[in-house]
Simulated assay, not measured.
Amino acid sequence: MSEIVILTESAASQIKQMMKESGEENAYFRIGVYGGGCSGLSYAMGFDHEKREKDHESVQHGVRILVDNESALVLKGTVIDYKEAAMGGGFTINNPNAIASCGCGSSFRTATNAGKPEEC
């Protein structure tokens, strides 16, 4: 099975550093989608210690990744990168399924899932 979410080496390196700094070296990196934000769907990323029955699991660059079934439908082919900038670094999410996003870039919608937009 092909990966649902693709981590670049830079993103994986940053995630591993964040795990180490927070004492979460044995955790999974979970990425998901939930209803909300200006455009209807928002990303959620964090550390988790429990794999659920319907989670998709993969390992990339030494990072164990979990994606739930519902999120997998709108995350298929998404690339997560980490870029350094003069004012600090940040993750970028390139989701080929997103057809619209809000100005701040933190929420989106797809052709088949408009989510639950909130007022901005």
Results as ranks from 00 to 15, higher is better:
P117H: 15
N94L: 09
I65N: 14
S39K: 03
L66Q: 13
D68R: 15
N26S: 13
I99A: 03
T92V: 05
M45P: 00
A12Q: 01
A85R: 15
V59Y: 09
V67L: 15
S107D: 02
N94C: 04
T8I: 06
M18R: 12
L41W: 05
S71F: 12
N97P: 01
M87V: 10
N26R: 08
N113D: 14
T110G: 11
I99M: 04
F47I: 06
D55R: 11
M1S: 06
A85F: 06
E50H: 02
S22D: 07
F108E: 00
T92H: 05
G105Y: 02
E84T: 04
G35N: 08
E24C: 03
I15R: 11
N26P: 04
I31A: 01
G90L: 06
R64H: 13
I80Q: 04
A98I: 03
K54Q: 12
K83L: 04
N113M: 13
E53Q: 07
G90T: 10
E21V: 09
V59M: 00
E24Y: 03
S58G: 13
H61T: 11
E50D: 15
N97E: 12
V74D: 11
Y28Q: 07
T112L: 09
G36M: 10
T8R: 10
T110S: 13
I99Y: 10
S22H: 01
Q17T: 12
V63G: 09
G37E: 04
G46W: 13
P96I: 14
L75Q: 08
S42T: 10
G77D: 05
S42A: 10
I6L: 08
K116R: 11
N97R: 11
A11Y: 00
K54W: 10
G88C: 11
G88N: 08
L75Y: 15
A27C: 15
C104F: 08
R109L: 06
S10C: 03
V33Q: 04
G40S: 11
L41N: 08
V74I: 04
R109G: 03
T92E: 03
E84D: 14
K20D: 02
T8C: 05
N95T: 04
E118R: 15
A111K: 07
A86Q: 02
L75C: 09
L73H: 15
I6T: 12
G35F: 00
E25K: 05
I93T: 05
C38R: 08
S13V: 07
K54S: 14
N113L: 06
G40F: 09
V74T: 13
L66R: 14
D68E: 15
G89N: 07
A27I: 14
A114Y: 09
A11I: 02
E3P: 06
N69H: 15
F47W: 12
S42Q: 05
G23R: 00
N69Y: 14
G35R: 14
I65Y: 10
A98H: 02
P117Y: 13
V59D: 09
K76I: 14
K20W: 02
E50F: 02
V33D: 01
H61K: 03
I99S: 02
T112N: 11
